[in-house]
Structures are given as C-alpha cells and as structure tokens.
Amino acid sequence: MPATVTPNRVEPDRRHHLEDHDNGSGRRPPTDKRTGGGGDNDNWDRSRGNYGPRERLRRARMGVFFAIASDLMFFVAIVSTFFVNQSTGHINVYNQYVNDWTPTAVPRILWFNTLVLLISSLTMEMARRQMFREHDAMDEWLGLGKPITRRTIPWLIATIILGLAFLAGQWTAWRQLAAQHVFFRTNQSSHFFYLITGVHAVHLFLGIAILIAAFTGLYLSRQLETRQIIVDSASWYWHAMGLLWIFLFALLAFCQ
C-alpha cells in the first residue's frame, strides 16, 4: 500500500444493529430506525443510504432548527435595539440630558394569552407524540387504516384553535391600548411594544398557516413518513414561538 494512503478508519467501526430488529430480510416497517447517512454514521453498509425514513425526518428537523436559529438572531437584534433605545436620552432645549422613556403598560389580557399559548404548546406536543406511536405505525403498515392521522387530528385542531385565540387576544390588546390613545407612533416604548408583539404575531400567523398545511397534509398524504415530518416540523416551530413569546412577554412586562 502506498504510504500516502491513510488507514481507513471507518471500516472497523462497522456494526450490525440487531437492536434495530434488522435481520436484513427485505423492507422494514416504517418505524424509527437507524438507517445510516450523514457520512459519519457507522452503519453505512446498509442499502438505503441517506434516504431512510429516519434520515428524512432528521434532515427536516435540522432545517427547522437552523431556521429557528436564524429567526432567533432576528429577535436578538430587535431586543438589543430595545435596550439601546431605552437607555439613551438626548439633550433638550435647556441643555439638559433627559431620557423621556415612558413605559407602555402591558394589557392584562396578555397574561391570559400567555397561558393560552402555553397550553397550545402542550396540545401540539400531544399531536406530535401521536405521530410516533410504534403500535399505530405498525397498524398502518399492515394496512389497517390511518390510526395515526385519526389520533393526531383532534390535538392539531385544538392547537389551531388555541393559536387563533392567542391572535384574537393580541388583537384585543392592541385595541385596548388604542382606546388609551397609545398607538404605534405614540412614543419610543409604544414603538417597541407594537413592533415586538406585531412581529411575533406575524410569526404565529405563519405558524397557523403551517398547522393548517399539516392538517391538510395529514389527510392528503398517504406516506406515514411525510406526515410525520410535517407534524414534527410544525411542532418544533410552534414550540419555538411559544418559548420566544415567554421571553418577549417578560421583556415587555418586567423590563420596561
């Protein structure tokens, strides 16, 4: 062997995954199995390469994860602006340095809203878990109807309703502020209140669109993997938005 060739470090690591119930006898049931991929997995002698169900799911999750990470940077930028703006003053006509930041009182309904969003995260998680019940997956694989879809739908509908309730509550909060003559352009603090809640509401609106898409997907798609991916991705996005809201709400309620 030429000296320049590095020893093959992957080969010796090969293992058979009997714990995956893989006896190599043809197509395996669509349960959560390791199928290789990602280059550095140690079971790449399997025939399905990067295209097993588990790889598709993990790929989609990773995409959602990166999207959320970049979205987080978006909010980090806005929140930094909030702190900078809050702490800077200016020189007035009498040559005094003043800071006339007047906090915007957070409407009560937002507390209730927060609770609604938290519960919606729970229902979403329930929906997600229904997608991965091995028992039902086996039933589907054997052709016994679509038990997974049947079990998931109610939780998904509950999430959509709670999400819409949150948006309605948000709308009410804006109306209440407007009734107190606090508008977007009123003062620095109100700029941020409307901006932050507004941008978050847009994200939730998108989230509801995604949930509705998942809902239709559950009906239309026959492939279990595809349905799992849609619901799984939607749920991580939804959780991220819920978590983000807690931070944003804490910022608006306690840090003004």
């Binding site: 990602g38 280059g39 002698d45 390469g49 990067n50 993990r58 995409g63 990166f66 970049s70």
Partner: peptide, 19 residues
C-alpha cells in the same frame, strides 16, 4: 439558501465522508 447548505453538509454526506 444557507439553511439548505448547512443541512446538506451535515446530513447528506455519502458513506465514509467523515468531517
């Protein structure tokens, strides 16, 4: 596009292509 590139690099490498 960068979400796509990152996910592709992390998840779509062929067998044996370690980091």
């Amino acid at each position: 596009s960068s979400i796509n590139i990152l996910t592709t690099i992390i998840r779509n490498r062929c067998p044996g292509l370690t980091w």
